[in-house]
């Protein structure tokens, strides 16, 4: 099973070559850092002051994650997960894939794992982008010194892990929709509808029932109305487990695998 899974992952990894998904990861990861960097270069005085403050890294984290967790990250996930899953429908290759000597479990997991590896890539590149956005003004502009505060690796990693957990229901739902529906627009449309619903649900006490809400809830100011006694991370993991199981059951019980 392990070797078959590794082979399956390698095979799935090759399929994403030359697809828009790869570019989407890069664009999604660097969009906010590039924007932040541009603002910092346009306002060198403010940047000079920020770089001398202890809170620089907290500010950078907030500025980048604010838009990222609210909209950009969920949007990137909706798009690239749907793109990756739709490869087989688009190329009429499900029948080819299902006649390879792989169990349906291996096929299901291989694709899912590749999606998770790409999500990790997205997170890593995003954080590298934040780091670079903080340093570049000092390299380009002479009178701006390097940040005086040390980079809080542990704090950034902890926050990233929480955000990662919070985004798992989005991945699971998009994977289910992508496997289930041939029409790419169903997955994208469904994803956007759930994202909008989650943003609206931020004003509702029981907003935590919407599976796409946990990333926006990562920002403190979004937690005013939603019941604070409910752990968003546990909810996210619960949703992820249930939707993944449902997705797998629907996939293996499909009568026609072509």
């Amino acid at each position: 099973m392990t070797i078959a899974l590794l082979n399956g992952i390698q095979s799935e990894w090759l399929k994403k070559k030359h697809t828009a998904a790869t570019w989407l990861i890069l664009a999604g990861a660097f969009f906010m850092p590039v924007l932040t960097l541009t603002v910092r270069l346009i306002h060198p005085d403010a940047t000079r002051k920020e770089n001398m403050q202890e809170t620089l890294w907290t500010m950078m984290h907030y500025r980048n994650w604010a838009a990222m967790s609210m909209f950009l990250m969920p949007m990137a996930l909706i798009l690239f997960v749907s793109l990756i899953t739709n490869i087989e429908y688009k190329n009429n290759t499900w029948k080819q894939l299902h006649t390879t000597p792989q169990t349906f479990r291996v096929i299901f997991l291989s694709k899912y794992i590749v999606i998770f590896i790409m999500t990790v890539q997205l997170f890593l590149l995003f954080h590298i982008g934040i780091y670079i956005a903080a340093l570049i003004p000092s390299l380009l502009l002479k009178d701006i010194q390097f940040p005086s505060a040390p980079f809080p690796l542990r704090g950034y990693a902890k926050a990233a892990i929480y955000f990662f957990i919070d985004c798992t229901p989005i991945i699971a739902v998009q994977y289910l929709l992508g496997l289930r529906f041939k029409n790419f627009l169903v997955a994208i449309g469904g994803g956007f509808a759930l994202l909008v619903a989650s943003l609206l649900a931020l004003n509702w006490k029981y907003g935590y029932v919407v599976p796409y809400i946990y990333m926006p809830l990562g920002l403190r100011e979004n937690r005013t109305f939603v019941d604070p006694n409910v752990s968003r991370h546990l909810c996210a993991l619960g949703y992820f487990a249930v939707i993944t199981l449902l997705s797998y059951i629907l996939y293996i019980s499909k009568k026609e695998k072509s």
């Binding site: 399956g8 095979s11 090759l14 070559k17 030359h18 029948k95 006649t99 390879t100 072509s258």
Partner: peptide, 30 residues
Amino acid sequence: LQKTGSLIDSPSIYAHLSAMENLMVLQKVY
């Protein structure tokens, strides 16, 4: 399936990959 090759109906290939890359996708599995 390990000992079977098949071609069902219309061609089933990854349009965004070259011929060699298409084969590499399956070579990893086989």
